[in-house]
Every structure is written in structure tokens, then in C-alpha cells.
């Protein structure tokens, strides 16, 4: 039997309506998509990681903004409670299931990639696309440049 992919756009629309919201959320859509070729081999590239989970700290749990956290030691937990994920079906106790630092460290040891950036970045999922476009995305870019990242892996929860 063919698997039918879940339509999260429709599920989100219906969930908002069920909570009494009268205007449907308008998902971002564009006519074109940017594309940049890799400038150097993976084995010489520094990889940066970007997550929608927040630092599991007093500040990280309440302050919705871009955060940067050291990639080593790998955090034992991240704050995920406010994000939309399938809480009745799974859990986020294993950070490697959504924050691939351990996996990238292994690839670095094998020489598949050059290195892992010394920190990773948290970017909040915002209702306001304007906040993301005008504040968070430029901030993440600036931090990736500071880190001299060649390639970014982005993992929304």
C-alpha cells in the first residue's frame, strides 16, 4: 500500500480553526529557490548545525531569539516543549535524534568532513515570517560567517 505523506499544512490549518482562529496561517511560498554549489570538498569543509530547539537553560526556555551553544561537549538536552512535534508518539530525550553533532563528529574522525563548527545555533520557529526574515535569518548568517562555516545543516524538529 502506498504511503500517503502527512499534510502538516492542512493539519495546522484545521488545528488553528479548532481553536477559534478565523484567519488561516499563510505559509511562505516563492517563485524561485536559491542554490549555491559547494566550493570545496566535504573533506575540507566546516559544517555548521542549526536547530529549532532552544537551549535547555532558564533563559533559553523563555527568551525567543537566536542562541549559540558550544558544540562540545554535546548538550545532554535541549528545550523542545513549545515546539510542534508528535508528543504522544515519540520523545526528544536523545538529542542525537534531532541535533546531529555526534554523527558529524564521527564523520570528522573518518575524514568525510573537514570539521564541525565550534558552536551551533538555535533559531525560534516564529509565527511572524517577518521576524525570521528580518531578524533571525540575518543573525544566523552573521554567526555562521563568524564561525567560518562552509556548509550548514538545518534541522527543524
Amino acid at each position: 500500500m502506498a504511503i500517503k505523506d502527512v499534510s502538516y499544512i492542512i493539519k495546522t490549518r484545521d488545528y488553528y480553526r479548532a481553536q477559534g482562529y478565523t484567519t488561516d496561517y499563510l505559509w511562505a511560498q516563492f517563485d524561485t529557490t536559491p542554490f549555491t554549489h559547494l566550493e570545496k570538498p566535504l573533506s575540507e569543509s566546516r559544517i555548521g548545525v542549526i536547530t529549532t530547539t532552544m537551549p535547555d537553560t532558564e533563559a533559553g526556555r523563555v527568551d525567543r531569539r537566536v542562541w549559540s551553544t558550544a558544540s562540545a561537549p554535546i548538550p545532554r538536552s535541549m528545550y523542545t516543549e513549545e515546539l510542534s512535534w508528535h508528543k504522544s508518539m515519540t520523545h526528544t530525550d536523545d538529542v542525537a535524534s534531532f541535533l546531529p553533532l555526534a554523527q558529524l563528529n564521527s564523520l570528522q574522525d573518518e575524514g568525510v568532513i573537514g570539521s564541525v563548527a565550534s558552536r551551533f545555533h538555535s533559531v525560534p520557529t516564529e509565527y511572524s515570517q517577518r521576524n525570521t526574515l528580518e531578524q533571525d535569518a540575518p543573525e544566523v548568517l552573521a554567526r555562521c560567517r563568524q564561525d567560518e562555516v562552509d556548509i550548514a545543516i538545518l534541522v527543524p524538529l
Binding site: F35, V140, L141, C144, D150, P156
Partner: peptide
């Protein structure tokens, strides 16, 4: 997160998104 990927890519950093909401 897709918006961030697009912004990075526009500014010269290649990206890959790993997710579950196709």
C-alpha cells in the same frame, strides 16, 4: 527554518535541511 536555509544559500552558504514535514 526553510526561510533561514534560503537566506544562507542566497548569501553563499550551501545548505541541507533534514526534516519530517515534507
Amino acid at each position: 527554518m526553510s526561510l533561514v536555509a534560503r537566506h544562507l544559500e542566497t548569501n553563499g552558504i550551501p545548505t541541507v535541511v533534514i526534516g519530517s514535514a515534507l
